[in-house]
Amino acid sequence: MPGSPARPGGRREHRDAAPPLSHTRRSRMSITAAMPTAKERPRRTRTKRVSHLPAIRLSSLLPSHIDLHDPLKPSLVCRDCGTWVPITGMQSKTQKLVPHHTGRADVAAAIRCRSSNRRIEWDMTIPEWHQALTDAVKEAASRQATTVLPKAFSPATDQTLRARAQRTPAGRLADWNAVLPRVAATDAHRQVAPAGDSPALSRTVPLDKLKITH
């Protein structure tokens, strides 16, 4: 090709040739490293944008998901992303959540939360929130696990278990020897054939031991 520089050996180098594979990998690595991450959430914003989503009522949230200890710097847990988000506009007519990403700052990807600039409806006062938070803490403390005591045995069961624990091998042998006569009598009654046991039109069954002859 005219104008292309010559390489050793008489071959010419094309200017539009594909870059080396190592160069492509380096470019991909640099692009991946430059991906934006979630930014730190500001306390105040000057944007006039308001989300079209319905306003969040404080009474609909758990008391533990609201932080009103500093009335000028309140925050709450966002319903959509589940993270703490500051509330801006405390000295203006409209209070709303600041624009924020769904993940932690400088860690997660920069994905904007759909509840950014969402209005807040103050349907409870700070003393009411304090009281609700105190009640929630007391209720959670009352639900703590307690020690479960085993159920007591009945008197008959307790007596049986105590007697079983006090028995010795000699005592067990004596008990077994005491019931041996009754066991022998039961076996003897089982060997007696009742009257009319053999069929009338068949050969009788021998009661002595069978002898097999070849």
Rank of each mutant, 00 (worst) to 15 (best):
Q131R: 15
K48A: 05
T125Q: 12
S64N: 14
L61N: 06
R164K: 14
H69I: 13
T47L: 09
V183C: 03
D16F: 11
L76R: 07
I111V: 11
I66R: 04
R162W: 07
R118K: 14
R79M: 07
L21Q: 03
A193N: 02
P36C: 04
C81M: 11
A165T: 12
S30E: 00
C113M: 04
R167K: 15
T146C: 09
A6H: 09
D16E: 00
P99G: 05
K96Y: 01
A108I: 12
T204K: 15
C113Y: 07
R44T: 10
K73A: 13
K48P: 02
A184I: 14
L149Y: 09
I120G: 01
Q166M: 15
R172H: 10
Q91R: 14
V98E: 01
A185K: 13
R190Y: 04
G171E: 03
A195F: 11
S51W: 08
L210G: 02
R43Q: 09
C81D: 01
N117D: 00
T94W: 09
R7W: 11
A170N: 06
V205E: 01
P86L: 12
K209C: 05
A105Q: 03
L76P: 01
R143M: 13
D158P: 00
P150K: 15
W84K: 15
P19Q: 06
N117M: 01
V137F: 02
P199E: 00
L161V: 13
D80Y: 11
M29A: 02
L133R: 13
A184S: 06
R11W: 10
A132N: 06
S116T: 09
V85I: 15
V85Q: 07
I212R: 14
A38F: 04
K93R: 11
N117I: 03
A152M: 10
G89F: 08
A200V: 12
I120T: 08
R49W: 01
F153R: 15
R190F: 04
